[in-house]
């Protein structure tokens, strides 16, 4: 799950964000979401968090944002929520 957002929103909110993101964007497939999130598939687990956090900041810097349930989010963290919501559903 998105680490910064998880410090602000509870689990149910993250799932709701994820569900809404998937409906709004049609990015509904877990593998596809992972592909979008991890463009370097050789990252070690310990590097994933740093990689994604940096990607979130970069998203905000470039204006790569999306409005989900009122939350102004980085696309990366919205996708993380989407993936999280899929995993929770399954």
């Amino acid at each position: 799950m998105p680490s910064e957002l998880a410090g602000i929103c509870d689990k149910n909110t993250l799932i709701k964000i994820g569900n809404t993101y998937r409906v709004q964007t049609g990015e509904n497939n877990g593998e596809y979401l992972e592909e979008l999130l991890f463009d370097d598939s050789e990252l070690r687990d310990s590097e994933i968090r740093i990689f994604l956090n940096n990607k979130v900041i970069e998203d905000f810097d470039k204006g790569n944002t999306v409005l989900i349930e009122g939350w102004l989010l980085s696309v990366t963290e919205a996708r993380q929520c989407a993936l999280f919501s899929l995993l929770e559903t399954n």
Partner: peptide, 10 residues
């Protein structure tokens, strides 16, 4: 978000 300070909900 860019400053990693927090998030805004409209």
């Amino acid at each position: 978000g860019k400053a990693s300070l927090g998030r805004i909900k409209l």
